[in-house]
């Protein structure tokens, strides 16, 4: 007897920042496993094509414009999921403002820091609280995209490390607080080649000096759909029913020291 090939059949998933990169990879992978997917991207120009691609492949999707730091937008995305597909089972918060180039902490522009606070901290609060009643009703799960930088810190983009860490502290606490409600909360720390990472790769020694690849046993940078997506599917599905409060580092084995 083969495994059930569609692990998210009948489930509805919201993915923020799904207009490209890791968010898109996760959205496509969830759709491949039968999920109805709400693409919550900052611009419909990027979100709409992803929804269209899912439908082209035979899945169900809806695109909605969503600024993740906006209470109204996040709640509208949740409402869209429920009104279009009847429920919300999984909230994946992935969107993030630009992290900027490597900078000393004293020189990080305010705008960069604000972007981190808004899209990682405020947005996590908004996504979690807006989704909560629905996740509770369905025994659903919350997935936050964090990073190894949220564990080991970043000498290049220190504000990024700070907020990615804060998200983990939040996730663990919500896992404890919402465990009795049947809601699981986990994080993923991916390394994947995305447009945002390509930008960082231009100036960060992590890439320019091959620091990242040198420490990656699998000798490649991840693909959002083939490498990161399936891990999100795992966390969203019943396969991980006995896991909560965890961070899965999906980086080809680069970061093991924890």
């Amino acid at each position: 007897m083969a495994t059930d090939t569609r692990l998210l059949d009948g489930k509805t998933v919201i993915v923020t920042g799904a207009g490209g990169g890791v968010g898109m990879g996760i959205a496509l992978a969830c759709a491949q496993h039968g999920a109805n997917v709400v693409i919550a991207a900052r611009r419909t120009e990027t979100g709409d094509p992803v929804a269209a691609e899912i439908e082209r492949r035979g899945g169900r999707a809806r695109s909605i414009r969503c600024d993740v730091a906006s209470h109204a937008d996040v709640h509208a995305a949740v409402d869209a999921a429920v009104s279009t597909f009847g429920a919300l089972d999984v909230m994946v918060h992935n969107a993030l403002a630009p992290v900027g180039p490597p900078t000393g902490i004293e020189d990080v522009p305010d705008e960069t820091f604000r972007g981190m606070v808004g899209t990682a901290l405020r947005a996590s609060y908004l996504c979690a609280t807006a989704a909560y009643p629905h996740l509770r009703a369905n025994g659903g799960s919350l997935i936050l995209l964090s990073s190894a930088a949220g564990i080991e810190g970043s000498p290049y983009i220190p504000a990024y490390g700070l907020v990615k860490a804060a998200q983990r502290g939040l996730a663990k606490s919500l896992a404890r607080e919402w465990g009795p409600d049947g809601i699981r909360v986990n994080c993923i720390g991916p390394v994947a080649m995305t447009p945002a990472v390509e930008e960082v790769a231009k100036t960060s020694p992590v890439f320019t000096e091959g620091l990242l690849l040198n420490r990656t046993p699998l000798r490649r940078i991840g693909d959002p759909e083939a490498d990161i997506g399936p891990v999100a599917v795992f966390l969203a599905s019943d396969l991980s029913r006995y896991m909560t409060g965890q961070t899965l580092i999906v980086d080809g084995g680069g970061f093991l020291a924890f």
Binding site: I105, L121, A149, G150, I151, E152, G153, S154, P155, P158, G161, L162, V163, K164, A165, A166, Q167, R168, G169, L170, K172, S173, L174, E177
Partner: peptide, 16 residues
Amino acid sequence: AMLAAVAEGMRVLAKG
């Protein structure tokens, strides 16, 4: 949850 988020944010800021 807020205190935990703050604690972990500060701890990893310290690492950076």
